[in-house]
């Protein structure tokens, strides 16, 4: 530490010690602010996180989110009292959509988190070790990628039985291979770098190299992918909910709400419109955010 060498100098503040990182973050923030779509994505995600955190306390009819029945106010159109109208149980759709944000956030975090937790280590190991370890891991990965995700998830849910937890498990099972492929490719590139070779030559052990050199250099694409995947996982889970294999009613899950609402088409259009719009805006937000993050963190990668 520099302040021990110069006892007369005042101890360095946090800002001084991390000056270069702070400059970097400032630059990122500046670039991010310059893009309208990135800021829109950030705003949508913040709104979503806010609703997920405080939803149950700010909704006008909290009891409606738990399956309360008001037969007197069935299927009312949107009004000042019920902004998004009411459903076939007389429950306030606005309240149910807002509380649904929490379910969706949970779904997104679990699927993306599990996917990354399994996929990233496997990818790093496959890329770094090479040889038969890599061959094994990549074969299995490619196998999972050979079947379209939603079809595979449907089969897994059919085997496990319907329900929100099983849906999340199924989607996590089909989600990790994407991370393996991403991280493996990145690791292959990073391990050829000089700093990895020098670390090895001064006797650093493999786990240390993986943790301190390989992982930090793979982090940007992982962050970008996780942001995108939050949206895509929510979308996929909503799809399974729509099919009828997800959360059973009256749980306030957006996909399941659209599914029930389908039988009340076309006269009661608001019933399916608002939960679907919530899914769309949430997924859009995470996609725009991920896109914006890619532009600043990982500018060389192609848009896909």
């Amino acid at each position: 530490m520099s302040n021990t060498e110069h006892p007369s100098a005042p101890p360095m503040t946090f800002a001084e010690r991390h000056a270069s990182q702070i400059r970097q973050v400032r630059l990122y923030a500046h670039m991010f602010r310059g893009s309208f779509s990135s800021m829109l994505g950030l705003a949508l995600v913040i709104a979503f996180l806010f609703l997920a955190a405080f939803g149950p306390w700010i909704v006008p009819y909290p009891e409606d989110t738990l399956g309360a029945v008001h037969m007197g106010s069935r299927l009312l159109p949107p009004s000042a009292e019920h902004w998004f109208g009411t459903d076939e149980m007389g429950a306030d759709i606005f309240s149910r959509v807002i509380v649904g944000a929490r379910t969706s956030l949970w779904i997104g975090i679990v699927i993306t988190g599990l996917g990354a937790l399994v996929g990233v280590p496997l990818g790093i190991i496959a890329g770094y070790k090479g040889g038969w370890v890599r061959a094994c891991i990549m074969r299995v990965t490619e196998l999972f990628l050979a079947v379209p995700g939603l079809a595979l998830a449907l089969a897994i849910v059919a085997s496990l039985g319907p329900g929100l937890t099983n849906c999340m498990v199924a989607l996590a099972i089909v989600w990790w291979p994407g991370y393996v492929r991403l991280v493996e490719a990145k690791t292959l590139a990073v391990k050829e770098e000089l700093f990895v070779e020098s670390a090895r030559s001064i006797g650093a052990r493999t786990p240390w190299i993986l943790w301190h050199h390989i992982l930090p250099n793979c982090l940007s694409p992982i962050i970008v992918k996780m942001s995108m995947d939050m949206g895509m996982a929510i979308l996929a889970a909503a799809g399974l909910g729509f099919i009828g294999l997800g959360a059973p009613p009256p749980a306030p899950e957006w996909g399941a709400m659209v599914s029930v609402a389908r039988s009340y088409m076309p006269d009661w259009w608001w019933y399916s419109f608002f939960p679907g719009a919530a899914i769309f805006l949430t997924v859009l937000g995470f996609n725009l955010l991920g896109d914006g993050l890619r532009d600043i963190l990982d500018p060389r990668s192609h848009t896909r």
Binding site: S37, L235, G255, M265, G276, A277, V283, N287
Partner: peptide
């Protein structure tokens, strides 16, 4: 086209389908 391409990936297919039915069919 940018709006089209970004929203295209985020649209829930089942919801989009319902909206199309509501508008073009009903």
């Amino acid at each position: 086209t940018r709006i089209l391409s970004i929203s295209g990936v985020a649209l829930p297919a089942f919801w989009f389908g319902i909206l199309m039915q509501l508008y073009f069919s009903v």
